[in-house]
Design a protein around this nucleic acid. Structure first.
Lengths: 189, 189
DNA sequence: GCCACAATCCTAGCACCGCTAGACATCCGA
DNA sequence: TCGGATGTCTAGCGGTGCTAGGATTGTGGC
């Protein structure tokens, strides 16, 4: 009865431990080094325990991605509300790039590793919330364009800067100028 | 003497065979299924032969990426020269998205798998050529902005559309509108 | 034509991976 | 106290990237 609840609580706790351990390991040594064996050793359980929580390695990565998206949403909201309508775009753009730079492994999990996350109509709530945050920033700037299409295009532009920046595809010394150009092109309605 | 040359020629031929086999397999079954064992079986040699050509699996992916970049450069050039100054941006943008859609595995190799390609000052020639093609398109539209920074920003915006599009992150029915918005925002000088 | 040598290739194996079956221990309700 | 359910672990399967060492082939000198 009551112990049942304790069990579930402990289970949830352990699940969170797995996710945070995976994230830590990925962030410090890269995703390839996050193996089930090492993860099991890290949380001091045997490997099958991990499979009682997640369907497999991919599902663990997905969980990290989902957690990252939730964080990202909070970061967006904080940046947007703190900046006010005028500077919302600049604040959110900076937040996006900062997040990508500070959490490269999570960023990688979200955008290049997570293949188990549904993205269409039946996307998880946390994912829709993240897009809603972006929508709140971009839609007012859409002018006579479709707000959804404009949000997606603006997001893509921002994402491209983050994605290419990670991996040294872009010149670091031009970072500020790129951001300025992005804001100039997407900022005025 | 002369046979030496034949040997080298055959070696180069086999190397090309490896790259094209890897590309084919990746394009039809995804990169994870491109294993050294399967690759060796496909080209009808034993595994160690592959290691006499490439340092490892990663180097083979890099080779496919490099080949893809070279093709991309040609595609850019063709699109740009065929369209003329006025429509160069639209043509190259369409070419970029088309290439990503038609060769998803190569695209993935270039932008998310290839970690062995130097991208800074000592980048391979073929890579600089690809950027030069983009530069030729974007620089005339930079206005009073730095042409390099503008090219990188435009490229990032375009790349974001391709990267997010692959994987179903963007609504397919808004594809045309997104492209229109991109052209509107980066087209006029 | 023969033979020593060098280059080439393959067989076999290592350590590691994701994942799972089946044995073992532990805790619960009656 | 005891049967059963729950939870955990040990051991192992097939597959991976990669490599050492032996067999085989072709080459150039006599």
């Amino acid at each position: 009865m009551v112990t049942q609840q304790r069990r579930e609580r402990e289970r949830a706790q352990r699940e969170a431990l797995i996710v945070s351990a995976a994230r830590d390991m990925a962030e410090s040594d890269g995703w390839p080094s996050v193996t089930i064996r090492r993860l099991a050793e890290r949380i001091e359980y045997s490997q099958p325990v991990l499979y009682s929580h997640f369907a497999g390695r991919g599902a663990i990565i997905d969980a990290v991605a989902l957690q990252g998206i939730a964080e990202l949403t909070e970061v967006f909201k904080a940046a947007r509300t703190a900046a006010g309508p005028g500077g919302a775009l600049a604040a959110v753009a900076q937040a996006y790039l900062d997040f990508a730079a500070a959490n490269p492994a999570v960023f990688e999990a979200i955008f290049t590793l997570a293949d188990g996350l549904p993205f269409g109509v039946d996307a998880p709530e946390v994912l829709k919330a993240a897009f809603a945050e972006l929508f709140a920033v971009f839609a007012p700037l859409a002018g006579d364009r479709d707000p959804d299409a404009f949000t997606e295009t603006g997001w893509a532009a921002l994402h491209g800067l983050a994605a290419l920046g990670r991996g040294g595809r872009l010149r670091p010394d031009l970072q500020e100028q790129r951001l300025a150009i992005f804001l100039e092109r997407f900022g005025k309605a």
